[in-house]
Simulated assay, not measured.
Amino acid sequence: MDWDDLRIFLGVARAESLSGAGRRLGMDASTMGRRVARLEHAIGATLFLKTPQGYTLTEEGARLIPHAEAAEQAAAAAAEATGREAGVAGQLRIGAPDGCANYLLPQVARSLCDAYPGLEVQIVALPRVFNLSKREADMAIGVSPPETGRIVVQRLVDYHLHLAAHRDYLDRSPPLTSREDLRHHRLIGYIPDMIFDRELDYLAETGVEAAAISSNSVSVQMQAIRAGAGLGIVHDFAIPFTPGVVPVLTDEISLTRSFWLLRHADDRASRRMTLLAESLAQAIRREVQRLEAKVAVQT
């Protein structure tokens, strides 16, 4: 059985489509389909059912998954042992909520690429939890640790959030000296039914029941605040990127949350992935501390 065919099988199983797997592996969908068919012929079993939603594993396909993943780990270990991954080259796909992806990971990616010139960093910014079992990402950053799954979890860093507004908004709005004054102001926040993690339910901290302007994207919320549309709870590390936006009511409304690094359990055996995980963790800690220090000076 050809390992490369198993690699393609895993790609299709994780992406649940030929085109999605092809984009990840750098092949066209027709080639992916031929390789899957070749593997099915070699083992004498149908591995996928094609449905309107995509490719679904059959029972035979599901039974092949752990063996294919074992071969994947063995291939990675062999590559490391023979030095083909010297210099930590290749692709690293990082999944993260959009606040982290927009305001932290670009600088972190620069740091990683400076340290490892052969590295290709891909940042996937999505307001949801990533499925590492399907290899949607090599590593993911979460705002809370998962309760299930074969995942290695590492606490990265605490970060802070405060109510903030643009100076233009504050200059033309009623006075804001206490939490009670918020009833006279327009709030910006998350769409309630699109909050994918309870740690992101910030609005309850203000005592205001509903936001006048809402989005599932941190970046959209911040741009609305920057435009002077209202007040919102934002990451301190995002404030340096938005001139004119300042924290308010810092003594009354202050939140602390944590970022967690999530990795597939099988990756613990990979020297490359362990090295990249530690480098990523260190870079994120440094960047949060650097940006929050700028906000501390303002306040």
Rank of each mutant, 00 (worst) to 15 (best):
H41Q: 01
A283C: 04
D193A: 10
A140R: 00
T177Y: 11
A15V: 05
R290L: 15
R268P: 03
C113F: 09
I94H: 13
R93L: 09
V218Q: 12
L104C: 09
E80L: 00
R24W: 07
A96Y: 07
E85C: 03
L39S: 00
H184Q: 08
E205W: 03
A29H: 09
A86S: 12
A101M: 05
D98C: 08
Y169P: 14
M139T: 06
E252T: 04
D181Y: 07
H264W: 05
G189N: 06
T148R: 13
G26Q: 10
R14Q: 15
L291G: 05
S219Q: 11
H184D: 14
Q223N: 08
S279M: 06
G87E: 04
I151L: 09
G118D: 07
A37D: 03
C113W: 06
G230M: 11
L261I: 07
V246L: 14
P146A: 06
I65W: 00
L49W: 08
G87A: 11
T56K: 07
L112K: 14
A21F: 01
R285M: 09
P117R: 09
I123M: 11
E60K: 00
Q282H: 14
R272V: 01
P247A: 13
E136W: 02
A165L: 08
A96C: 09
I151N: 08
P127Y: 02
D28A: 13
